[in-house]
Amino acid sequence: MVAGLMLACVVTVSAGQSPDDERGRQLAADAYRQLTGYGDATARLTIIVGNGRDEERRRSVRWRSIEPRGGGERTLVVFEEPRDVRGTALLTVTRPGAEDEQWLYLPAMNRVKRIASHSRSGSFMGTEFSYEDIALPDVGRYRHRWIGEDSLEGVAAWRVERLALDPASQYGRQVVWIDRDHHRLLRIDFFDRNDQPLKTLRFVGYRLYGERYWRPDELRMVNHRTGATTVIEWRDYRFRMGLAERDFDPAVLARSQ
């Protein structure tokens, strides 16, 4: 009976999906695969937030990430600049099919706090990125549809539309541009619930690391409404450094410096 119910679900899902939906989902899955399977990695990030009026602020952070055995991802961000928040650390734990969890270490107050139920539409560290934007593009969180082919700055690309299944998502839809050759994300156009352009994210300067991992040098987000921008510059990418899951335990956050 259980098998029968499962079959019914599969049939129902299949019956509701067009070939374009299936193709879109497949392309999204390929892009997701391209971003995963790295084991662990470290990098240094400079986050430049512009307000659209020739003013910008910079944050420097160290970034570490690991793919734990049970799937998902654990990411640790440790602030280096500005100086008076040096050592502040944010640990984000993503598990398939579960809510993200976050812990924050505040050195001046010597506290580790678990941040409960953070809205995914909230801003990531005061940038134009939301937590929804920086999360791994887990295929199960969206409904996809292939909408065409195009080229972006000379690179042949697929265009896939995705709709977030989370009703709390701030977006009505997103159009993702995926490189045809390497399944790299090239660009994402975000639309609000009135289908008005809201933001555009570009992935700039891809490099191949360890002959396997394509990673961009920069993520450039523009908010079309406010003109505000955020650029995240990645450097010193290192993969398979032998990081352990225990390095990403909330209990050791205070020692993460």
């Binding site: 928040v85 502040t88 001046a108 107050m109 801003s123 560290m125 005061g126």
Partner: peptide, 15 residues
């Protein structure tokens, strides 16, 4: 430093 951390947290909540 404490104030700076609180500002950061406030930004995380609602920039």
């Amino acid at each position: 430093q404490e104030a700076a951390e609180l500002v950061l947290m406030a930004e995380m909540s609602d920039p």
